[in-house]
Deep mutational scan, measured.
Amino acid sequence: VTLFVALYDYEARTEDDLSFHKGSKFQILNSSEGDWWEARSLTTGETGYIPSNYVAPV
């Protein structure tokens, strides 16, 4: 499992996005959609889309 960590805070703009804070960790579920990845937050357990340029591999 590849884990990613948030580099910045992000406020969701749609109900499909995940809001998160810098330092939040994610499991990436689908990275084939270009700049928006489907991810599960390891902090909240919620699933949604995150901007790929806001995260980096742990």
Rank of each mutant, 00 (worst) to 15 (best):
V1L: 13
V1D: 14
V1F: 14
V1E: 14
V1A: 12
V1S: 13
V1K: 13
T2S: 12
T2V: 13
L3N: 06
L3A: 07
L3E: 10
L3Y: 12
L3H: 10
L3D: 07
F4R: 03
F4M: 09
F4K: 02
F4L: 04
F4W: 15
V5W: 06
V5K: 04
V5R: 04
V5I: 13
A6K: 00
A6L: 02
A6Y: 02
A6W: 01
L7F: 03
L7A: 03
L7I: 10
Y8W: 12
Y8T: 06
Y8P: 00
Y8V: 06
D9R: 03
D9S: 07
D9M: 04
D9F: 04
Y10N: 02
Y10V: 01
Y10K: 01
Y10D: 01
Y10Q: 01
Y10C: 05
E11N: 09
E11W: 09
E11G: 04
E11I: 13
A12Q: 06
A12W: 02
R13F: 08
R13K: 13
R13I: 11
R13G: 09
R13Y: 08
R13N: 10
R13W: 08
T14C: 15
T14S: 13
T14E: 09
T14I: 06
T14Q: 10
T14Y: 15
T14N: 14
E15D: 13
D16E: 12
D16M: 14
D16I: 14
D16C: 15
D16G: 15
D17K: 15
D17R: 15
D17M: 13
D17A: 15
D17P: 01
D17V: 14
L18D: 00
L18E: 00
S19E: 04
S19G: 07
S19N: 06
F20H: 00
F20L: 04
F20C: 02
H21G: 09
H21E: 12
H21V: 14
H21Q: 13
H21W: 09
H21L: 14
H21S: 14
H21R: 14
H21T: 15
K22G: 04
K22M: 08
K22A: 12
K22C: 08
G23C: 08
G23Y: 06
G23I: 01
G23L: 03
S24H: 15
S24F: 11
S24A: 14
S24I: 06
S24K: 03
S24N: 14
K25A: 08
K25E: 09
K25D: 03
K25I: 15
F26D: 01
F26N: 00
F26T: 00
F26G: 00
F26C: 04
F26R: 00
F26L: 09
F26P: 00
Q27A: 09
Q27D: 07
Q27V: 15
I28G: 01
I28C: 03
I28A: 02
I28H: 00
I28Q: 01
I28L: 06
L29W: 06
N30Q: 09
N30P: 04
N30E: 08
N30A: 08
N30M: 07
S31I: 12
S31A: 13
S31H: 10
S31P: 10
S31Y: 13
S31L: 09
S31M: 15
S31R: 12
S32M: 11
S32Q: 13
S32T: 12
S32E: 11
S32N: 11
S32V: 10
S32G: 11
S32C: 13
S32F: 10
E33H: 14
E33D: 15
E33A: 13
E33M: 14
E33R: 15
E33V: 10
G34W: 09
D35E: 12
D35H: 10
D35G: 12
D35A: 10
D35Q: 11
D35K: 09
D35S: 09
D35M: 11
W36D: 03
W36K: 11
W36L: 07
W37K: 03
W37E: 00
W37Y: 09
W37S: 02
W37D: 00
E38S: 08
E38K: 13
E38I: 15
E38Y: 15
E38P: 06
A39W: 01
A39K: 00
A39M: 05
R40M: 12
R40A: 06
R40L: 13
R40N: 04
S41A: 09
S41L: 13
S41C: 14
S41Y: 06
S41M: 11
L42M: 11
L42D: 04
L42R: 03
T43S: 12
T43V: 11
T43H: 12
T44P: 00
T44L: 03
T44E: 02
T44R: 02
T44Q: 03
G45I: 02
G45V: 01
G45Y: 06
G45H: 06
G45S: 05
E46G: 05
E46L: 11
E46C: 10
E46H: 09
E46F: 08
T47A: 07
T47M: 09
T47L: 08
G48I: 04
G48P: 00
G48K: 01
G48Y: 03
G48F: 04
Y49R: 14
Y49P: 02
Y49K: 13
Y49A: 05
Y49T: 07
Y49N: 07
Y49L: 14
Y49F: 13
I50V: 09
I50T: 00
P51D: 05
P51M: 06
P51K: 06
P51S: 04
P51G: 03
S52C: 13
S52T: 06
S52M: 09
S52K: 14
S52V: 08
S52L: 04
N53F: 11
N53Q: 11
N53Y: 10
N53I: 09
N53R: 12
Y54W: 07
Y54E: 01
Y54V: 05
Y54I: 06
Y54L: 11
V55W: 02
V55P: 00
V55S: 00
V55R: 00
V55N: 00
V55K: 00
V55E: 01
A56G: 08
A56I: 12
A56P: 01
A56Q: 10
A56M: 10
P57R: 07
P57C: 06
P57G: 05
P57K: 08
P57V: 08
P57Y: 06
P57N: 05
V58P: 03
V58N: 05
V58R: 03
V58D: 09
